[in-house]
Structure formats: C-alpha cells, structure tokens
C-alpha cells in the first residue's frame, strides 16, 4: 500500500516547501543519477517516522507531483504538518490516502 505521508515528495527529494520548480528538476535529476549509479547515500531519505528507502520511481513520481500546483498544494500541507502532528498523520495517513485512491 502507498504511504502517502512517508512518500511525501518534499521528503523524497529532501527539499523545503518553498523550493522552485527548477530546484525540483535539478534535485530529481541529481538523485536519479545517484540512484542509477548505486550511490549509497542516495538510497534512503529521512522522514519524521524514520528513514525510508528511495527508488528512481519514487523520485520521478515526486518530481511529477511537485510540478503540478494543485498536487503540490496537498503535499505542502502534509509536509508543513510534519512538525505539528507528524505521529498522528503517520497513523492516519496510509488508511486515509489509501481510501482516496478509490473511485
């Protein structure tokens, strides 16, 4: 199941909420390059709930989401919320967003 909190694009790319689209592109290209070359320090990223594995697919998905303003808006809310209710969101996140994929 997707972890919509832990896979927040800002976490995956290790970028701040105020970053520009260009920052997103540059960071994603850099991380993809590192992952494809097997550079170990790119293999995980920190989240409030601990380190998570980073993959090329995750980086690409994160890049795509942050380039769409409407999607980025939601991710910003979650990324900003990490300091306030990180644990609660982590608990609610997978269930809640798993449900959001239904139609």
């Amino acid at each position: 199941m997707d972890d919509r909190f832990g896979d927040n694009p800002f976490f995956v790319l290790e970028l701040e909420v105020g970053c520009t689209s260009m920052d997103v592109m540059r960071q994603a290209d850099k991380l993809i390059g590192m992952l494809e070359l097997g550079v170990e320090k790119a293999a995980t990223y920190p989240t409030p709930a601990g380190d998570k594995p980073r993959t090329v697919d995750k980086v690409r998905a994160a890049r795509a989401r942050l380039l769409v303003p409407e999607k980025r808006f939601f991710d910003e809310i979650w990324a900003k919320a990490r300091a306030v209710d990180g644990a609660a969101a982590q608990a609610a996140g997978p269930d809640l967003f798993g449900a959001l994929w239904w139609r």
Binding site: M22, M25, G33, L37, G38
Partner: peptide
C-alpha cells in the same frame, strides 16, 4: 531546462 544541472559520476 536547468542552466545549472549536475553530472553524477562513479
């Protein structure tokens, strides 16, 4: 698009 891209090597 980026005027300041990275090249990564190993």
């Amino acid at each position: 698009t980026d005027l300041s891209p990275f090249v990564i090597g190993r």
